[in-house]
Design a protein around this nucleic acid. Structure first.
Lengths: 121, 121
DNA sequence: CAGGATCCACTTGGATACTG
DNA sequence: CAGTATCCAAGTGGATCCTG
């Protein structure tokens, strides 16, 4: 578990504290559907650097939301999956997703739906 | 509306972007129940400074979640309330609250349930 | 392949003091 | 009462390069 030094005044702070990292929300959403290898996650979040991705994953792991499985082989293979505990967040994540979608449509937030051809090569 | 420069890759990022400020979650939860004056909010979040509280409130306002009503009187009175749009977050907030509570009980997160006597005086 | 190590820029929030 | 104005420390994420 991640060492939490701070004192909370409201339960929602706990959830936000666990979910509010630059990439944590998306990572958790992705993992709801299937397990991912490190490199696969990196591709999905394509602008993330390995260092930061590792950070985010470690914190999620320390908070008990995801599990890291290492396959002893060369080249290495590491798979990230949700713990049962992490799966409990699914309903919440879906609602946040839905609200975000509504907000997006309302406000006209820009999404990157496609990566440019140059970046795909 | 707050100017969002960033590009989103997933709807949940929008929600997180709007809700992930140090005090935003709690503020929104409080406002679900009743309207609050600036000073009342400051008391509830008692360690927040006026500057930061103002920042958080302004951003929530720019994102269309809360409304700021100024009463032309001396001394000034400013009331913050949820917009209908902000109320749409209620279900989501409740779920986050509930999960946070469970996480708290599981992990043993420390809550400040009471303020010390010294600070109350 | 899945990272670790360094160094660095920027953002966020807090301390303190002041005001219409 | 409800903020502003300044200044500043810490945190957070990114760039770049290296490795078992």
């Amino acid at each position: 578990m991640r060492e939490r030094k701070k004192q909370y005044f409201h339960p929602i702070e706990v959830t936000l504290d666990v979910v509010c990292g630059k990439w944590k929300g998306v990572i958790l959403c992705l993992l709801q559907e299937k397990d991912y290898r490190f490199g696969e996650l990196k591709d999905q979040l394509y602008s993330v650097t390995p260092k930061v991705l590792t950070q985010q994953l470690r914190e999620l792991e320390e908070d008990g939301l995801i599990k890291r499985t290492v396959y002893a082989q060369v080249p290495p293979k590491v798979v990230y999956s949700l713990t049962p505990y992490g799966k409990d967040l699914e309903g919440t994540l879906r609602m946040m997703e839905k609200w975000g979608q509504a907000h997006q449509e309302k406000v006209g937030v820009n999404f990157n739906e496609e990566v440019s051809e140059a970046e795909l090569s």
